[in-house]
């Protein structure tokens, strides 16, 4: 899922202080799971903003709404009837949701309430870690299910590099060396022979280098 992190309250306050009617707009998907932008976070942020403006003057109206997904026309339509009531929207969705809402409601100011961090997994309570960089051409079949693109600091495809020490990466003692993990996993799978095969030069045109990406599926376009 997409992992996001709440923006500091001060930053949000600074962005919205000039607006009078503000909607705090949540998303029920990824940001709910990583506890950054779901219904609960919407309630908490709206309450905090109300209290801030109550103690610092300025009569603001703060509204709350959470939709199933902000990256879908269908659900974004739910606020169309009320959109004129808001001067600004603080979107607690990932960057995709914020942009999609902005595209849909051209004349309403959109302020992101979270920083979108990565595609990751919920490794432990309160710990989310990156697992994918959406490079567009997956190599996991050859690397024992461990991604060298997202988990190796250098994105080395024939690793490890010389910076790998005792299973850790040279960038930090807390970061596992992806290639050590790959070797360990291939060993467990009894597929160490695969490690000997040199990976060819990767086609990075499917990554961000090729510009914004699009997926078109004629078969589902009905």
């Amino acid at each position: 899922m997409i992992i996001a992190k709440k923006k500091p309250m001060e930053e949000i306050i600074e962005e919205v202080k000039d607006f009078d009617k503000i909607l705090v707009f949540g998303c029920n998907e990824c940001v709910t799971v990583c506890e950054a932008g779901g219904k609960k976070e919407v309630e908490v942020l709206a309450s905090a903003l109300r209290m801030y403006f109550m103690t610092h003057g300025g009569e603001k109206e703060i509204f709350e709404k959470t939709v199933e997904r902000q990256c879908d026309h269908e659900y974004l339509e739910e606020i169309r009837k009320d959109i004129d009531n808001y001067d600004a929207i603080i979107s607690l969705a990932c960057g995709v949701g914020v942009q999609f809402t902005a595209e849909k409601y051209l004349t309403t100011h959109l302020i992101p309430g979270v920083n979108t961090v990565c595609l990751g997994a919920n490794e432990d309570r309160g710990l989310w870690t990156e697992r994918c960089q959406a490079c567009g051409s997956c190599v996991l079949a050859k690397t024992g299910g461990i991604c060298p693109v997202s988990r190796c600091a250098k994105r080395v495809l024939n690793g490890p590099c010389g910076g790998s020490t005792n299973g850790k990466c040279e960038i930090s003692k807390d970061v596992d060396c992806a290639w050590q993990l790959i070797v360990d996993r291939l060993k467990a799978l009894d597929k160490l022979d695969d490690y000997e095969k040199v990976a060819p030069v990767k086609d990075w045109s499917t990554d961000r280098a090729g510009g914004p990406r699009t997926v078109t599926r004629e078969d589902v376009n009905i």
């Binding site: 309250m9 001060e10 908490v44 903003l49 209290m51 801030y52 610092h56």
Partner: peptide, 8 residues
């Protein structure tokens, strides 16, 4: 923490 930030 929130209360501290909002001035309460």
């Amino acid at each position: 923490e929130i209360l501290e930030k909002v001035g309460v």
